[in-house]
Amino acid sequence: MQGIVIPITMVPGNSTIHRMNPLPKLLWTLGILALSFSTRNIAVLGVACLIGLLLVFYSGITKAYVRVAMILFPISLTLITLQSIAPAFPRPWTAIVGFGPFTIYQEGIYSGISLLLRIMAMTTWAMVTIMTSHPSDIFTSLKKIGMPYVLNFIFVMTLQLIPILQSEFGIVLNAQKSRAMKGSGFGAILPSMVPVFVGAIERVQQLSISLESRAFGSSGKKTSFRQVRMAFSDYVALFLGFLVPGAATYWVIVDKSLDWSHSMVFSPAFSITLVLGATIGFLVFVFFAIRAALSA
């Protein structure tokens, strides 16, 4: 088989975070998710992001994280460009500087930075959880707390299907090339879709018969082969996972003084540099992405 690449998957390791039960990790991630959506305060989001990054370094997944961030971060940079000229804030907006038909607003810069930090905080924490936990352990833990068996299977199967479909896509492209059809670029991708998806449907039909023949979906008591245990430290982490993000979320909701969207002032030079930097960063990414797609 060729092309088996799961970009976001477990990075083997033996750090404390690797050894933790996935449930507290998932709870912390959900807590940070709730906190991130509850505030626009860039200091709070920045700290959440920073702690996430420290956990990335600590658990030894920096390389894998950077690979994913290299894709995610440039795309997220568009938020700064778009928000700076059209802030997701109620008017009135305070203009900083204008060029042509566009005006950069104070609230826009603030909103762009806070949205970027929000995405980075959430994805960094999620990445720590995913890259330090075996997928089967995550699903087993979820099963233990009542996640339906079938739903778990769908997650596992999806993880398996992605690399398989990638591989089949490569085979179809090679077959096209061998018949003197276009073998690269966007023009080659469309005709490949039909055989890949027809193949996927056939695969799923065969799999469903095979699963049925193995009593999958039967009623009655089910057991789990994968054993995921909760240590005392996991219970402590779970408790803190409720307490810390919960308290922080409560604090950012009730403390109105944390709304810095109007009080923070950005200089015209800083604003222009930030917007231009973000735009250039995104365009460079798009340029390389298109070049990679065309040469694939």
Binding site: H134, S136, V156, R203, F216, S218
Partner: peptide, 22 residues
Amino acid sequence: EFQLSQMSVAEEIALGMESLGF
């Protein structure tokens, strides 16, 4: 290949047994 779905050989074999409550 069309009959397999799990992440490890052991889990693949266990799938049916899990359904029957072993």
